[in-house]
Design a protein around this nucleic acid. Structure first.
Lengths: 278, 278
DNA sequence: CCAGGTCCATGCCCGGACGGTATCAATGCG
DNA sequence: CGCATTGATACCGTCCGGGCATGGACCTGG
């Protein structure tokens, strides 16, 4: 830890100018200083960033990666500083994350009605990453589905949502009106939460091509409906719980205010969440 | 710019211990040093971070915001360093961004078949932010819809996608089979790309409640279908172009390889993109 | 083949920032 | 009212970042 942002800036300059002298000129320092700083930087990181001949400078694989990351880091730092100054001038922001399909707009509207001075950022969660953004500060409040890793999080149950089975139309069970979990014994199940590398669409393609079946929350059925897929209720399946989750060390000012407003709204919504998006 | 990450770490320690002495102890430095560093940090930032009495330390609004941002920054920096080391050991990653509804799985599959050593990260773009992640390095390649700000980006057209009008069922035009753009003259149009603060769902609620109508790409119609909305083709509307966009200063190694593989795949797909998700 | 130009690297020096010790000032508590 | 606790200040040593001068490698032109 303790990356030196000044050295990172120097590194970016060299990477972009592909030449120490010009980069130093652009940075308003002398070339020997830059050489020494870059070398120190490489030593701190533990890996070389440039392959130097005396005539040319090329990025290594690690250097290319760092150059990509550098742009992200500077952008994150810049917006962080901007937000700090906004906060200093009294502007407040709350980042609300939500798992796919969960409705947040009613709660947001109720909250902004009561707290018009607070700006809201929406943060769409991915299927396989519901909790991490709450823990690492990217979001203050999250609408998530059980199960998830709730260590370090406080959770408020807000409703239950039924799951339906998604099968290819060619599946022997596809003609049925409804299923029981016994019908699904031995079927290959694809859990969207386990796929980290590909999009949700690909899972449904996998189902359509017969690689397995899946249980999906009823509220996202509309998103992925295709003529070659059918969705069937599973009568004896326990609905999965939907929660509001907040980090235990989260903002003590806005988060409770949001929970206070959002929770009753969502209790009223829980029936709606259970029956899906419409 | 040039935030000092060491000072940021010191700040986090004070914010968490709510006491300079204990924080200094946890940082393995002495308390006077910490006091001086925090004061210098506040001066650099230009705003106070703590309200201190001689007996207690409280975060200011700016301090609370910075504490949130600090967790994000450290997390970004940590993953950046991890990825640099992975790259140094030969692992390669490519971040593929995609606007809502655009299919990427075929291109990804073709690419990973040819380059199994490259890990793929998918980055879902938001409606109102198609281009920024490409410019700031969060993504290497993007599947986007025109119009977008293509400054600093190279773009490859990959197809066209028709747009359909979305109206409430109660709308006078809702009974028609199709529309022309003349029918829409004078109708209040809601452009989802302009709404930065709320989710796409909310726009469709706004349409359903009669606040206006919208043109949406046909491939996302399934995502937001509701009984109180109808979607009608607009016969004389020019389809909007979908593109592959890459930053001009992007990775010279993987991006061309991806384009080479993805472009023919997508030309084959463009008909599919024009007819939507299925 | 060599001389000069153009790179980056190295050695040396200086100023400023960071860290430590000693101490003071203010507040809360018994 | 005295003591303990906590943050702030003063002073000092060390190290790091910066500049200057110079060396060494490589390309190029005559």
């Amino acid at each position: 830890m303790d990356l030196d942002l000044r050295k990172l800036r120097y590194f970016v300059a060299v990477a972009e100018h592909r030449q120490f002298g010009r980069a130093a000129q652009a940075l308003f320092i002398t070339q020997p200083v830059l050489s020494r700083q870059i070398r120190a930087f490489e030593q701190e990181l533990g890996c070389p960033l440039f392959t130097r001949t005396t005539r040319s400078v090329e990025l290594t694989a690690a250097g290319r990666q760092l150059y990509d990351e550098a742009r992200l880091i500077t952008s994150v730092v810049d917006t962080a500083l901007r937000r700090v100054h906004e906060a200093e001038r009294g502007e407040q922001r709350l980042v609300v994350a939500f798992a796919p399909g969960l409705r947040v707009s009613d709660a947001i509207r109720a909250f902004t009605a009561r707290h018009p001075e607070v700006g809201i950022d929406l943060f769409p969660l991915r299927w396989w990453e519901q909790d991490a953004p709450l823990r690492d500060g990217r979001a203050h409040v999250g609408y998530v589905r059980r199960p998830f890793d709730d260590s370090g999080l406080r959770t408020v149950p807000i409703g239950h949502e039924t799951k339906v089975a998604c099968l290819p139309v060619t599946h022997p069970l596809a003609g049925r009106d409804s299923l029981t979990s016994a019908d699904l014994d031995g079927e290959p199940m694809l859990d969207i939460r386990k796929r980290r590398t590909f999009s949700a669409e690909e899972k449904f393609e996998a189902i359509a091509s017969g690689q397995g079946i899946a249980l999906v929350p009823v509220s996202v059925v509309g998103w992925y409906s295709r003529p070659d897929l059918v969705y069937l209720p599973v009568t004896d399946l326990r609905p999965e719980e939907t929660c509001l989750a907040v980090p235990e060390d989260g903002r003590a000012d806005l988060v409770p205010a949001f929970l206070e407003i959002a929770t009753p709204t969502l209790r009223g919504l829980s029936a709606g969440a259970a029956t899906g998006q419409g």
